[in-house]
Simulated assay, not measured.
Amino acid sequence: MNDDEQAAEELLQQSGEQKRHNSEPSTEETTDARSLQDAIVDAYEAIDDGDSSSNITVRDENLAALVRGLEDVDELSDVAEAARDELDRDEGRVSRSQTLGDLARVGLDVVAPEVIEDGKAARKEFVLSQEDEF
């Protein structure tokens, strides 16, 4: 066994001897913890200041194939309309990007409606803070 293999073996042995943390996650909110709403407001400010991008990227082969397939058979607009109906939005024909954003919002609303509510409240807070600036 060469020196590299021996060093790797020693690290492996040491890591196996370390104890794992077995306590349950705390459900209590700490006063030091930053709220999701505050984090979203900060993200809006960073985007507005040009310090952060307004784009998000998803690398998902299956989702990409599904969306492209929907486009190829001219059904993406039907899915877009269904998403917009679910969100109570009426803008007629929308872009692919808007459609994917709307679908993400619908999905988030299904699995974590409180997150959507935090996002709405944060958006209002951000917009109001912009109006307060003279």
Rank of each mutant, 00 (worst) to 15 (best):
E91S: 12
D90N: 14
K120G: 01
D118N: 15
G101L: 10
K120A: 09
D90E: 14
E91W: 07
L128N: 13
S97L: 02
E125W: 00
L128M: 08
L70M: 14
R93E: 14
R105T: 08
A104P: 01
E114V: 05
S77C: 08
D85T: 09
A122P: 02
S95Y: 07
V111S: 06
K124W: 01
A83D: 00
G92T: 09
V111P: 02
D74L: 10
G101S: 13
A83N: 06
R96Q: 05
K124C: 03
V110T: 11
R93F: 11
K120E: 14
V111I: 15
V127P: 03
A83L: 06
E71I: 12
D88W: 09
A122T: 06
D85F: 07
D102K: 06
R84D: 13
V111E: 12
R123G: 03
K120C: 02
G119W: 00
L76D: 09
L128I: 06
A82I: 09
F126E: 05
A80L: 05
S95E: 10
L108P: 02
E125A: 14
K120S: 07
D72G: 10
R123Y: 06
A82Q: 14
Q98S: 12
E81L: 05
A121L: 11
Q98T: 15
R123T: 02
T99Q: 06
A121S: 13
A83Q: 03
G107Y: 12
S95V: 06
V73P: 00
K124M: 00
A112K: 10
L87D: 08
D118Y: 04
D90Y: 11
E125Y: 02
E114H: 13
K124V: 11
A121T: 05
E125M: 05
T99R: 03
L108E: 01
V79F: 14
E71W: 01
I116R: 08
S77T: 14
L76I: 10
Q98P: 02
